[in-house]
Design a binder for these strands. Structure first.
Length: 314
RNA sequence: GGUGACGUAGCCAAGUGGUAAGGCGUAGGUCUGCAACACCUUGAUUCGCCGGUUCAAAUCCGGCCGUCACCU
């Protein structure tokens, strides 16, 4: 059942990962699995991490958690920075902690980058960011974006080949890495792939449903969010935090600002919110589609992750 | 029944004689420290239908059909 373990010689715990687009029913599936195998859930969702953003991010409520511990959920202030590197560090720490209690960590989430950082060899150990450099590059991008791209072509042609010239954000990041570390982004990514080894075996599961049904569920869920008081939650946040924050740009909140400002009817804001959510789900599906070895969530029942991980004692 | 306006992609829409802009939606894709971000690609052998004028018609002319408005 687990060829990676036998071939590598050293034992690796098997960790279930439930992924999929928004509104596909991941959370329920994860809770169900966790209850069956005595698991704890580690969320891999870049927006559910925030406090005070419960309804709009569809963060599971106490009742929906059904007594299963959920980690990395609702613990970051909306005005605090949090990156993939932070996520991976925390998630790995939790995986080990949960395993050492004899329980099974269940990863559940829809943020492709976060999941990639767990299951692929990403080099995130040393900090290669530099806010000062980034600020400077951002300013430069406003006046001379083409110049930035040409500089990247000179400095790091491999990355320049992969990044479209209009994707200023990524162009800036690649240049930032080079200026901050003296190494190119492509070199660094390559190094990560060579050096980093993943101490776990991840098994991926996804709820499959046809596009139409998913889109129907999204529309319905947005309506339910409004009923549950999304407007009140969003307005409270809007009074407290800057709209330009990453958290405040989350789907479910940013679409309401024109309505709050009186520039748009509520009906229209909701229409756009539904549309943006559908677009998001589509992007998620594109992301997951190219990941290999994803099984339908229904197959979860075939695996007893507890037993798989008990081999450790052998 | 009469008069007038309109009919271009799923929707909105530019184009008034020289070989079908654009936007939205849809679909596909990219992704290594802001990722619910950012970015890329995506359709009309044809303009309601039929006929005419012309080297050339979505564009001009005639008829028909449809929609809307006003009048009776």
């Amino acid at each position: 059942m687990n060829s990676e373990n036998s071939s590598s010689g050293s034992f690796k715990p098997v960790i279930p990962v439930i992924l999929g687009p928004t509104a596909s029913g991941k959370s329920e599936a994860a809770v169900k699995l966790a209850k069956r195998i005595d698991g704890e859930i580690i969320s891999a969702d870049s927006m559910q991490i925030y406090q005070e953003m419960q309804i709009g991010t569809a963060r599971p409520t106490k009742e929906e958690m059904e007594g299963v511990p959920h980690h990395l959920v609702g613990f970051v202030r909306p005005d605090e920075p949090f990156t993939v590197a932070d996520f991976r560090k925390e998630a790995y720490r939790l995986i080990d902690a949960i395993l050492s209690c004899g329980k099974v960590p269940v990863i559940c989430g829809g943020t492709g980058l976060y999941i990639n950082s767990l299951i692929y060899p990403y080099d995130l150990e040393k900090d290669n960011t530099d806010p000062k450099i980034r600020k400077r590059l951002e300013k430069e991008a406003q006046t001379n974006p083409d110049g930035l791209y040409r500089r990247l072509q000179k400095v790091d042609p491999v990355s320049a080949e992969k990044i479209h010239k209009n994707n200023t954000k990524r162009v800036i990041r690649a240049l930032e890495i080079f200026e901050a570390t003296g190494k190119t982004k492509s070199e660094q990514d390559e190094e990560g792939r060579e050096k980093v080894s993943i101490p776990y075996v991840f098994k991926l599961f996804m709820p499959f449903m046809d596009r139409e049904e998913l889109y129907r569920r999204i529309d319905k869920r947005v309506d339910r969010m409004i009923e549950k008081g999304l407007l009140v939650e969003a307005e409270k946040l809007d009074q407290k935090y800057d709209r330009s924050l990453v958290s405040m740009q989350a789907i479910g909140y940013k679409e309401l600002y024109p309505y709050f400002d009186g520039n748009e009817s509520l009906e229209e804001a909701i229409r756009i919110l539904k549309r943006d959510t559908r677009h998001f789900a589509k992007r998620q599906m594109t992301w997951f589609r190219r990941m290999q070895g994803i099984e339908p969530v229904e197959d979860l029942n075939q695996y007893d992750f507890r037993k798989l991980n008990q081999q450790k004692e052998d």
